[in-house]
Design a protein around this nucleic acid. Structure first.
Length: 504
RNA sequence: GGGCCUGUAGCUCCAACGGUAGAGCAGCGGACUUUUAAUCCGAAGCGUGUGGGUUCGAGUCCCACCGGGCCCA
């Protein structure tokens, strides 16, 4: 019989075990020794990054000594000890540089201290910039300082950290072990900066609208629910920024955009995370065709910013983000793809039967517009490869977009599809308060009929429209998907630093 | 929600028919004054996600649970 209450495992699951585990106890002992000797520094002044060295000494010859002294800082990746010599790669944000340590320069005592360092430690070092006999640009260390000790071992220096769960849960390890993780994180920032720049160039102003709302509006999606204690009211996290941004255009801000976190209470898969980033923009006096041009320009600019090219490789195939993108109406796309001779006036029973043939199970409250959209989703969406504006969505499924100026049944709307996924959604904004109220009421009827994703009525938004929303072109871009596209990633968790995961 | 796959040392991975768990890297000890995943020598380290079951014997088979992946709704 064993006493089950006795802790028996010595895994590195918690900090208590660090003292006991063979891979960490020496590190902990060294850590404590530093603390007893006065502790670690609070700051450190470096004079060069790894990239600076490459930039400043591009033509250094093997064996050359520059006579220039720099101070660098970073994480120690490895120590290659060669008796009285040490080669030690150190990485900082800009890249990796090599420290060259020899006894003559650093002295007996310093050399011994350097040998005490462990992979993962943060250190600062000062020394002359040299090239080794093999020509590797290096800092010949004359002094160094341990900035903070790493108590836990680094992942495999060659294979890095591969397990996707571990990489996602412990992104800090992923980032220190895998260059690709770091590159994607930086690419994301580059892309978002470029998005911001593109809109600012066009005179848009960036705004912030509420995340915490009495009722989430602006899209058809299930919200997260929460509660405000002081006000004692139930609240929801936003599922879009749409109606608030349009309120600002009513107020006269004319061109606004927001890059913000959106929350939708839905499943997790390769292209969905419960919280994700969306860019929405609204431009007074523009219509949806103006927004198509905007999207073409913005996507090309982001691709160029990220990759210096508008050609993109995804899953081993190439596509081009150079303008112009193809354009096709939703109805034509469905007709072309299915061969069905249908339109919005086709008898609903015929449409439903056609939908059934394509694996769609129409619900009783669906009209022709909803059926056509379902057919598009089922038969067309995944077949689109090159960037394509799919236009003129049915009124029935577009409660916030303006009816088409000359065609019945449809709206002035488009979605951009690339490689089988939606990247943008835009329309000439519905600015008729009477029409908007009717659309909301139609949605309310669908909700009553059992569609729990139907758009709720927003009376204050109607009120805003009653003050007058100018003709406006609006746009939403899925930022995470754009980053996926431009970094060649096929799973959204690869472009979100901390994707939503079930707690361990 | 359904189907298939998966969890082994800090990391990356092996382990015929069920036969009592190995390697590389990291770590530890040693050699080495120009390495680039340094090299060489030596000694160690896991009882296989958790809990049951079948069996003389279970990473290997069965069940449940906890995570994860892929595909589908």
């Amino acid at each position: 019989m064993t006493d089950v209450s006795e802790p028996t495992d010595d895994e590195l699951d918690d900090s208590q075990s660090l003292d006991d585990h063979p891979l960490t106890r020496d590190r902990v002992a060294k850590y404590r020794k530093v603390m007893e000797g006065g502790g670690f520094p609070y700051s450190f002044e470096r004079t060069a990054t790894a990239q600076d060295l490459v930039d400043r000494f591009p033509d250094i010859a093997p064996g050359e000594a520059t006579g220039e002294t720099v101070t660098v800082a970073g994480r120690l990746k490895n120590t290659r000890v060669m008796g009285k010599l040490i080669f030690a790669p150190v990485s900082d944000l800009s890249g990796t540089l090599q420290l060259f340590v020899d006894v003559q320069t650093l002295g007996e005592e310093g050399f011994e201290a350097f040998l005490e360092l462990d992979a993962g430690d943060w250190l600062g070092a000062t020394g002359e910039v040299i090239a080794t006999k093999r020509g590797e640009l290096s800092v010949k260390v004359s002094s160094f300082q341990l900035l903070q000790k790493s108590l836990r071992p680094l992942p495999d220096k060659w294979h890095g950290l591969k397990d996707v769960e571990e990489r996602s849960r412990r992104r800090y390890v992923d980032l220190m072990a895998n260059d690709d993780a770091r590159n994607v994180a930086i690419a994301r920032t580059t892309i978002i900066s470029e998005l911001r720049r593109q809109f600012e160039l066009r005179g848009y102003i960036e705004v912030e609208t509420p995340i915490l709302l009495p009722e989430a509006t602006g899209a058809t999606a299930r919200p997260f629910a929460t509660h405000h204690n002081a006000l004692d009211i139930d609240m929801q996290l936003r599922i879009a920024t749409e109606l608030y941004l349009k309120r600002l255009v009513v107020g006269g801000l004319e061109r606004v955009f927001e890059i913000g976190r959106i929350f939708r209470n839905e499943g997790v898969d390769s292209s969905h995370n419960p919280e994700f980033t969306m860019l929405e923009s609204y431009e007074a006096f523009a219509d949806y065709t103006d927004i198509m041009t905007l999207v073409e320009d913005v996507f090309a600019a982001c691709a160029t910013a990220a990759n210096d090219s508008t050609d993109v490789e995804l899953d081993g195939r190439w596509l081009s983000l150079a303008a112009p993108f193809a354009r096709i109406t939703m109805l034509d796309a469905v007709r072309d793809r299915t061969g069905l001779d249908i339109d919005y006036d086709t008898d609903i029973s015929v449409l439903r039967a056609a939908a059934g043939d394509h694996g769609v199970q129409p619900e009783d409250h669906w009209g022709s517009g909803k059926v056509v959209e379902a057919l598009f989703d089922a038969a067309v969406e995944s077949t689109i490869w090159e960037p394509t504006f799919v236009t003129e969505h049915p009124i029935e499924v577009s409660p916030l977009s303006r009816a088409h100026r000359s065609k019945p049944h449809v709206t002035e709307r488009f979605e951009l599809f690339i490689a089988g996924s939606e990247y943008a959604n835009a329309f000439s904004e519905l600015n008729d308060p009477f029409d908007q109220r009717e659309r909301f009421e139609a949605q309310a009827a669908m909700k009553a009929a059992g569609d729990d994703e139907a758009h709720p009525v927003d009376d204050d938004y109607i009120r805003a429209l009653e003050y007058g929303l100018p003709p406006t072109g609006g746009l939403g871009i899925g930022v995470d998907r754009l980053v996926m596209l431009l970094t060649g990633k096929t799973h959204i968790r690869e472009v979100i630093l901390f994707p939503t995961m079930r707690p361990h």
